[in-house]
């Protein structure tokens, strides 16, 4: 069997994706600590966390939630594979959505109020960012005339999609559970809903959710970078800038209520993204 460049990309993305995601997550904790005047954990702290969790006892409330945590991971990897193959972006988005839905369903299958409220909030989060993501794909289609993920490499998208880029960063704040949108579960200590959606997952199952989250981080920043895919240097710079912006926002905002998030996301970002799309239609 010969290794085509495309297969190589897929394998690299699947293998390196979570590692990069974990490093970004570690860097996030480090920079956040520095912003707060602390020393912070080592950058490879997320690896320690996951390795520890994998070796802990696998507690659960019922058996149904376990199936969903695996589906959560499987569909997140599927999203990475589809994007790395340069396949249809809308389909990749649907796979990504189902990955989140799987986590929600797993968390809903237990009789824990925290978990259930967390998963309802996660649904509201998806409801808040989903239109923005589809509009992003619409924007790419209007520029390149194709739904294939491989088409983004043709030209710098940021030039024609500046507002969509901005709204995507807002959606990214939701996806990465950053303040002010970290309402379903929170990375900072335990304040919100006692970890909300992940509360009933312990040990290795929680490790799987963490690994999935690393993939998610990887996807988000890969998409940010693809706004300038013609030059890797600028793309990476864009990703780094987006990363720093998210950290700043995370540290200066308080957490908001779910309804506030919904009202905000369906007004300001959606209007911004829509106006960007409309001027593309007119152009």
């Amino acid at each position: 069997m010969t290794l085509t460049p495309q297969m190589l990309t897929v394998i690299l993305a699947v293998v390196l994706g979570p590692i990069l995601g974990a490093l970004v997550s570690g860097l996030d904790r480090k920079i956040t600590a520095r912003v707060q005047g602390r020393w912070g954990p080592p950058i490879i702290q997320p690896f320690y966390d996951v390795l520890k969790l994998l070796r802990k006892e696998a507690l659960g409330v019922n058996r149904i939630q376990i199936i969903y945590v695996w589906l959560h991971l499987a569909f997140m990897i599927l999203t990475v594979v589809l994007l790395a193959m340069g396949q249809d972006m809308l389909m990749a988005l649907f796979a990504y959505t189902f990955s989140s839905v799987a986590l929600i369903l797993g968390a809903m299958s237990v009789r824990s109020p925290y978990s259930r409220i967390g998963s309802h909030r996660k649904i509201m989060q998806m409801f808040a960012y989903e239109p923005v993501l589809i509009l992003l794909i619409v924007g790419v289609y209007l520029i390149t005339g194709s739904f294939q993920a491989s088409s983004v490499a043709q030209q710098p998208l940021l030039v024609k999609l500046p507002l969509v880029f901005l709204t995507f960063l807002m959606a990214a704040a939701i996806k990465l559970e950053k303040s002010p949108f970290d309402i379903a579960t929170s990375h900072h200590a335990h304040q919100e809903l006692v970890k909300g959606i992940t509360i009933e997952y312990a040990g290795p199952y929680l490790a799987l959710i963490e690994i999935t989250h690393f993939y998610e981080i990887f996807i988000v920043f890969a998409v940010v970078a693809s706004f300038w895919a013609t030059s890797p240097a600028i793309g990476l710079g864009l990703a780094a800038a987006g990363f720093l912006a998210l950290i700043v926002v995370d540290n200066v905002f308080a957490r908001l209520t779910p309804m506030w998030m919904l009202r905000y996301m369906w007004t300001v970002p959606l209007t911004l993204a829509l106006s960007n799309i409309i001027w593309l239609y007119c152009a």
């Binding site: 507690l59 058996r63 149904i64 376990i66 589906l71 499987a74 599927l78 925290y114």
Partner: peptide, 30 residues
């Protein structure tokens, strides 16, 4: 890719389902 990952997810998930031990059951956190 869909069939592979759906299949893998369900397969591994069902194996974990079957191998889950009763002694590992805990009540929901209240």
């Amino acid at each position: 890719p869909f069939l592979v990952f759906l299949g893998l997810g369900l397969f591994v998930g069902l194996i974990s389902f079957a191998r889950f031990k009763e002694k590992n059951v805990r009540e929901p956190f209240l």
